[in-house]
Design a protein around this nucleic acid. Sequence first.
DNA 1: TATGAATGAGCATTCATTCAT
DNA 2: GATGAATGAATGCTCATTCAT
Lengths: 196, 196, 196, 196
Amino acid sequence: MPKRDREATRARLLEAARLRFAREGYDATSVRDIAGDAGVDATLIFRYFGSKKRLFDEVTADLPAGLPDGLPDGPEEELVARMLRAVVFHDWTRYGGEHPLVAMLRSSAHDDARQRMRQEVCDTYVDALRDLAEGDGPELRAELLSAWLVGIGILRSVVATPALAGASADDLAPHVEAVASALLGRPMRGTPSSEG
Amino acid sequence: MPKRDREATRARLLEAARLRFAREGYDATSVRDIAGDAGVDATLIFRYFGSKKRLFDEVTADLPAGLPDGLPDGPEEELVARMLRAVVFHDWTRYGGEHPLVAMLRSSAHDDARQRMRQEVCDTYVDALRDLAEGDGPELRAELLSAWLVGIGILRSVVATPALAGASADDLAPHVEAVASALLGRPMRGTPSSEG
Amino acid sequence: MPKRDREATRARLLEAARLRFAREGYDATSVRDIAGDAGVDATLIFRYFGSKKRLFDEVTADLPAGLPDGLPDGPEEELVARMLRAVVFHDWTRYGGEHPLVAMLRSSAHDDARQRMRQEVCDTYVDALRDLAEGDGPELRAELLSAWLVGIGILRSVVATPALAGASADDLAPHVEAVASALLGRPMRGTPSSEG
Amino acid sequence: MPKRDREATRARLLEAARLRFAREGYDATSVRDIAGDAGVDATLIFRYFGSKKRLFDEVTADLPAGLPDGLPDGPEEELVARMLRAVVFHDWTRYGGEHPLVAMLRSSAHDDARQRMRQEVCDTYVDALRDLAEGDGPELRAELLSAWLVGIGILRSVVATPALAGASADDLAPHVEAVASALLGRPMRGTPSSEG
DNA sequence: TATGAATGAGCATTCATTCAT
DNA sequence: GATGAATGAATGCTCATTCAT
């Protein structure tokens, strides 16, 4: 079953690349690193993906699929709380322990990465939040809230400021409620109801 | 203006390095790139700084000095508004058009860079904001507000989401007022008084 | 004779390295020199040997194998004569025309090289001679005789003093007999019997 | 007194070069090393000597002057014993602890060094010994004895074979007597009379 | 098709040396 | 004349990538 093996090898390469690119960034990652992690010869990367760059593209194109499913499900007023959990408290070990958006900043010198990030932010966060915003400029309100989520992710995992690095979801809940309500112009909740 | 001027050459190398490191990150920048931009031989980098790493250190150690002076001056309730202007609307061309903190994320695979970022965020933003926060957990409140500023900087200049990329300081003012007040637990203003 | 033959390329690199290291010493030899002599790309040195240093190690570890086989065979009293032929009259073109021990002196600023030389001198010469020495201090006697052989090799091929440079094996024979007998405390012969 | 300073600096450079070249060989020694040891700027080397090579030449041309004075004085039959002391037991710290001849082998890839060594060996050792040799081929006899002295120097200080490295002058005396007598064809003594 | 030998451009760094002041 | 800024070629080594078998 060589067909299966091929697919399995491809998948292992993608997985290894995802982790390396996230943890170390595009430039600091070598194709040999990736191939080594996957336990295969480095030339297979060129055989399967054409080039390091195209492998990177495929990894980042994969991004939204990596987001937790069912994010939009549940009461509207808890959406921001659910998003925060996705950004900050979800298990991102597949991406080296950080939210892929945060990880991809490391490669943000490359325009493709920026584009992928924009798509991801807009499609996953801004679009969903805009529908909730009341008052004028819902787009800007939605983006400002997205910016906050991204900023929290960065300060928590990359910069590791002391209070945020040690904060639990419950510690953040009241502030989520306050800021989300302030920006969206409507009452929001800081905790998903399923978790009390 | 002598051609062989140690200090001038050193300064040009630092300037070129600052820009390259900001725009492309540490790994994607070569000492030849920097020397080329500065119009001098690459060996001078080793003569003056010892190594590429030490040049990077010197560039990033220079960071706080690069912040706009007089940030803490002025009424307390306008501090956040002034900070936002510093992060987003200041002229950061010396750093490739982005706030140095944002630019440094590109090198965040290196622990030194993370440390410098932490220091910068804490010393410049969190410390000043913590003194203003009322209610319990002032540290966390201050960090959450800092996270917002950082997130806005990123979405605006790196990710370039449409509404934020086109927003003026005045567009942001009401939201600054709302979020800052919500997080600090006291009334804040969204616009520095000197600008109406 | 396939063009892409790992073992063959490796062997050519070793051969080229042996010659260069012998003729010019470790420091004066560059990996590009060696690769150029072998007619291959310099990166293969790192692929096959890891580093210039490890290539040098492999070359010098190869040393004893490079000595003429069958040295210990034959009558005891002719051993020194056979050794002298090995040191001086053997065809050392593979090592640039000099006995490898002599060649390695050129790299003797490096401790590894000294160690290899010590091993070689002791294992190949001193050990064999000690068993023949009579009287007290057989070790010292054996070393002093080894020193003579090494000194002859140096004066003949490196320093090229006139009489030694032009001397034949037969010219040396009576003196070999005299000195070997004097140092070992027993009658030795200056000429291998097979050569009259 | 700038004239004096110039001469003093020149002398310090020569001294430092002598030591470095002896200890590490020509190739492994950099002009910066030498200048650093002498406590002056590296460019002075080019000012005073023209190039690294010419500095090396000057250092090696200095060689015979470095030999202990009064070597030929004293009874003829003790000459070899005195020479051995000069080669092996003299204080050669000025040359990095080894006899300059031995040290110069490290640079023997350079033809100039070989030539200097030949001159040194012939003028200082062979010439003096030839006059003592009896029987035919006095030149060859003298060279073979010189070879022994050189070989002892090398095995003792470079290769560091165990017995020779720990041997005292007295340990060597009987063998010196035996070998010198055997090679020169006349009775020689192993110990200078002044030392018993 | 797939293995792995081979490549050459590029890396940070050090070298001996020159030239302007 | 002397200081030190500047140079460019060369160093060992790693990179992504190609090509033969």
